[in-house]
Computed example of a mutant assay.
Amino acid sequence: MYRHASRLLIRSSSSSASGGRAAAAAAGPRAAFSTDVPAPATEDTGFVEAWRKVAPSLEPPKTPSAFMKPRPPTPSSIPSKLTVNFVLPYQSEISNKEVDMVIIPATTGQMGVLPGHVATIAELKPGLLSVHEGNEVNKYFVSSGFAFIHANSFADIVAVEAVPLDRIDSSLVQKGLADFTQKLNSATTDLEKAEAQIGVDVHSALNAALTG
Rank of each mutant, 00 (worst) to 15 (best):
T74F: 00
T74S: 03
T74C: 00
P75V: 08
P75M: 10
S76Q: 05
S76K: 11
S77C: 00
S77I: 12
I78H: 00
I78A: 09
I78N: 02
I78F: 03
I78G: 00
I78C: 03
P79V: 09
P79T: 10
P79W: 06
S80P: 01
K81A: 10
L82M: 09
L82C: 09
L82N: 08
T83A: 13
T83P: 03
T83D: 12
T83V: 15
T83E: 14
V84S: 02
N85G: 07
N85W: 11
N85S: 13
N85I: 07
N85E: 04
F86M: 08
F86N: 06
V87T: 07
V87S: 07
L88W: 02
L88R: 02
L88D: 00
P89N: 02
P89Q: 02
Y90S: 07
Y90F: 04
Y90R: 07
Y90P: 00
Q91L: 14
Q91P: 00
Q91Y: 01
Q91D: 05
S92C: 04
E93H: 04
I94Q: 05
S95E: 13
S95P: 01
S95Y: 00
S95C: 04
N96D: 14
N96M: 11
E98D: 15
E98H: 13
E98N: 15
E98A: 15
D100K: 05
D100F: 01
M101G: 02
M101R: 13
M101W: 00
M101L: 07
M101P: 00
V102W: 03
V102A: 03
V102C: 05
V102T: 02
V102H: 04
I103E: 10
I104F: 11
I104R: 14
P105H: 12
P105K: 08
A106V: 08
A106M: 11
T107A: 08
T107R: 10
T107S: 06
T108K: 12
G109C: 05
Q110H: 07
Q110P: 05
Q110L: 13
M111R: 10
G112P: 09
G112Y: 12
V113D: 11
L114G: 01
L114W: 09
L114C: 03
P115K: 07
G116D: 03
G116I: 06
G116T: 06
G116F: 06
G116S: 07
H117Q: 10
H117M: 08
H117V: 09
H117S: 14
V118S: 13
A119F: 12
A119V: 10
T120S: 15
T120V: 14
I121K: 14
I121E: 15
A122T: 11
A122M: 12
E123A: 13
E123G: 09
L124Q: 09
L124S: 08
K125C: 10
K125N: 05
K125T: 14
P126C: 13
P126S: 12
G127S: 04
G127T: 12
L128M: 04
L128T: 03
L129N: 07
L129Q: 04
S130N: 03
S130C: 01
V131M: 04
V131T: 02
V131S: 03
H132F: 10
G134C: 07
G134D: 08
G134N: 08
G134A: 09
E136P: 00
E136G: 01
E136I: 10
E136Y: 07
E136K: 15
V137C: 03
V137W: 04
N138D: 14
N138V: 10
